[in-house]
Computed example of a mutant assay.
Amino acid sequence: MRKKDCFYLGKIAKKFSFKGEVLIYLDTDEPELYENLESVFVDFDGQLVPFFMEQASLHKSDFLRVKFEESNSEEDADRLVGSEIYLPLTMLPKLEGNKFYYHEITGFDVIDTNEGEIGQLKRVNDSNYQPLFEIDFNGTEILVPMIDELIHKVDRENKKLYLNVPVGLLDIYLGR
Rank of each mutant, 00 (worst) to 15 (best):
N36M: 06
E54W: 03
E69R: 06
D76S: 05
D112T: 01
D76N: 05
P50R: 06
N158V: 01
E54G: 09
D62F: 10
K99H: 13
F18Q: 05
G97A: 11
M146F: 12
F52K: 09
D112S: 01
K94L: 07
V66G: 02
D27Y: 05
F63H: 06
L87Y: 09
T106W: 01
K3I: 00
D136Y: 03
I12C: 00
N114P: 00
P145V: 12
I147H: 11
V66K: 00
R2Y: 13
G116S: 06
Y101G: 03
P31V: 14
Y8P: 02
L150S: 10
I118R: 06
N164C: 08
H152E: 15
P131D: 05
S17I: 08
K14M: 07
I85V: 14
F52T: 01
L23S: 04
G168A: 11
S73D: 12
I151L: 13
D29H: 06
L121Y: 12
L163N: 13
L169V: 09
E69P: 09
L174D: 10
L174M: 08
F68K: 00
F68G: 02
E117G: 03
V124T: 12
E75W: 11
E74H: 07
F18N: 11
P31N: 13
G168P: 05
Y86M: 03
Q47R: 08
G82W: 02
S73H: 11
E157L: 08
V124Y: 06
D43N: 09
V42H: 04
M146G: 07
K60N: 11
N138Q: 15
R79I: 04
D27V: 11
E69S: 12
A56Y: 01
L9C: 13
I172G: 06
I85T: 02
V22F: 05
L92R: 02
L95K: 14
